[in-house]
Design a protein around this nucleic acid. Sequence first.
DNA 1: TTAGCTTTTTGACTTAAGTCAAAGGGTTAG
DNA 2: CTAACCCTTTGACTTAAGTCAAAAAGCTAA
Lengths: 235, 235
Amino acid sequence: METSILKKVYIFSGLSEEELEDVQKITRTKTFNKGDIIFFDTEPYLGFYITVSGLVKIYKISKDGREHILHLINPYNTFAEVPLFENFGEIREDAFRYPANAMALEDQTKVVLIPARPFTELLAENSRISLKMLSGFAKRLRHLNRHIEEITLKDVTKRVANFVLSEYINKRKTKLDSTHSIRLNISKNDLASYLGTILETLSRTFKKLQEEGIILVEGRTILIKDFEKLKETAS
Amino acid sequence: METSILKKVYIFSGLSEEELEDVQKITRTKTFNKGDIIFFDTEPYLGFYITVSGLVKIYKISKDGREHILHLINPYNTFAEVPLFENFGEIREDAFRYPANAMALEDQTKVVLIPARPFTELLAENSRISLKMLSGFAKRLRHLNRHIEEITLKDVTKRVANFVLSEYINKRKTKLDSTHSIRLNISKNDLASYLGTILETLSRTFKKLQEEGIILVEGRTILIKDFEKLKETAS
DNA sequence: TTAGCTTTTTGACTTAAGTCAAAGGGTTAG
DNA sequence: CTAACCCTTTGACTTAAGTCAAAAAGCTAA
């Protein structure tokens, strides 16, 4: 693994070449195929990860097997940093375990492990990383806040509409592609689990939104036919 | 407001008397009565808060008026720190707004405002605060994770049972009180909103758990009659 | 003590979303 | 080319939890 990868990771983005090499030395790269488990929430904590390529889902499972996806981790984003900071204060039984499960969603999903111990030492020396990390945590807290708001205060139709809308707005910001459509990079089953519902209900909801002339679903491509109506449905 | 209060706040707990006085100088104390709004999620961000006495709820409201409580903030705990760290990177429209609403739940709820600008300067100088803050964020991320898990993967009965159980375990850890009971410091309406349900459903659930001989509810006191069965119901 | 609140309980009913089962499409590998 | 597989859709049915309305129980303050 090269330091050029680390540079693209937000928390490491301010480091010197030398510092990057220090980090690079302690990492371990692993490759997973679709459906492979990266870790379970029952495992002892080793360190946090960077997704380098592919896609990772962070999720919880209920006793009876239902699943809920908390985060989807795209390339150059990190996951499982929380336990790094839980050694302070009283020792909770769930400290030093991963907070959730992680699974690769695509073949050739490459992740980099940053082992906890050497990293925390680096952190103590380099306060710029702490600030970056705080910013990263803040973003994630916002995300979870919004997630809870969605799931507890909105029905499935609103959630689906809002998902399509957010993805579309996000795409417009980053990609130079002027089609009024989005492309899902996950299965509808996973999307349902991310939106706090099940495949069948998602399917019926897509159908309803189509019948109302708001969107058009073709496989993993969703065409937005009535942006205003979509916004209205989402809010 | 005295520095003795700040000392009891986790993120300030490692500071010298001198540093505490620096913080103390920039604070502003406010007192609220039950039902008073501390801030709305639509307001521009001023800074974060410490609850000094009383109780604060952090919550979201849907368009049609339904409410969901995200956090309950007890004395010496902080809230609304997230926007402090959102100035970095792209400016989101919701940056510099509060992430949720805050309301006092008791009369004479005293809160201390730490204005953002002077505090971030302090933060840049004092990296120990950053680490404490990271630890605080980590705890909150865990909490939200668990919260989402509860709401999406468990039914109301399990959630209620688990709430009683957690409160009880928590009480045993902190207070020297050997009764097998807990005392709610919030109304059942607020508890329902915290557990992602409504008052009527909570009431019926309590009734059911009583009929099963697991608990006994008397006003705001809940007596645990069958601990094992409670654990079983909660899991 | 009682009037006037707020909070909680209970009953009857509705409904959104989940479950179960079967069939349809699409993709891939031999 | 086709069998085997996975992913998705559709239909029929169930159910947990929400809504609405009214009564009951608790508090508080004059």
